[in-house]
Design a protein around this nucleic acid. Structure first.
Lengths: 166, 166
DNA sequence: CCAGCGTAGTTGAGCGTTGAACTATTCCGC
DNA sequence: GCGGAATAGTTCAACGCTCAACTACGCTGG
């Protein structure tokens, strides 16, 4: 949080407050999302030593043919700022799970490369991760509800980040 | 993230991997939730100087008759650890938005009290907040989709935190 | 009435994130 | 090919969160 408050103008007119039903929908969505994300992250972190953010980095790298990716592409894929990713990759490098390599085609660029040790760490964490996703999400929802989280998610993504929606 | 990895046993049997459809539902849910939460927090923070976490604290206090609440109750309401809330209240105290007061009935307890300045800050931020919630969530979704986020949210909450579901 | 245990809340150290400033390289127009 | 703008990535300082240790108070049984 920054302390610089830009004095942007209020939108014109009276705010469109949420009515009672909208409040309930908003609160249910907010708390459930926060709690699910939090539990998944804690469970994964405590049982494998890999936070959800780090796990996503390892997954992204593992899914490329050469197990390497440009830093900025990786940042985009992981919903991470470049600064955050740079720090994270440094810490993964200290663990020996990722190494940096200058990009041949672009001297400014760096490639993050998943090491064999990193791949092994990912293999160890993946069962814990999928178990968590099932326990906190899929096992609680009916087939219709699973369909609707996908539908809502893709609808929101079309606005938030169109390139990410299939 | 802690470095202490408890060597908990793997669940027996082969992990129940996600199939292609489940992957799509999971990714859509995950990315949309992260992006919506992130945008709301950034927008609120940059336009009002109040992060979403702090906003929730102010809202919780403002909704009580006396604009005060026990620290632990406040922590529960805000999905916060006690330590986190204690730090947050200290920072809100520095801004003059909250003050601490020893609890009359329980000498161990502290009450967080919303000041008039804190209430004014909340009044300033509320229109920005509700505008964000509409822009990122309600304005993108049909009435059926709004119903379904509530339904799914409450279903998940019944498992995650039964007391929070109406 | 006090010892021991449980509860409420705080503190401190370490790690992670943020945003802005910075370096290095490439791209573009002339 | 050269000067300036744009892009890629890193670094730094400030802040926030986590976990564990700690203080302080209340409760309960003997």
């Amino acid at each position: 949080m920054t302390s610089s408050v830009s004095p942007q103008p209020l939108p014109p007119g009276e705010p469109r407050w949420l009515d009672a039903e909208e409040q309930k929908a908003w609160r249910a969505w907010l708390y459930s999302a926060q709690l699910v994300l939090d539990r998944l992250d804690r469970d994964l972190t405590h049982r494998t030593g890999i936070s959800h953010a780090y796990y996503e980095i390892l997954v992204a790298l593992s899914e490329t043919p050469e197990r390497m990716m440009r830093m900025s592409e990786l940042a985009d894929r992981c919903l991470s700022s470049r600064s955050r990713l740079s720090h994270a990759v440094s810490r993964l490098e200290e663990r020996g799970w990722v190494r940096r390599q200058v990009c041949a085609e672009d001297g400014r660029g760096q490639l993050a490369v998943l090491t064999d040790e990193g791949f092994a760490a990912l293999e160890g964490a993946a069962p814990i991760h999928v178990e968590g996703v099932r326990r906190e999400l899929f096992d609680r929802l009916s087939a219709e509800q699973v369909q609707s989280i996908r539908d809502v998610g893709e609808t929101l993504l079309r606005h938030l980040d169109p390139d990410r929606v299939p």
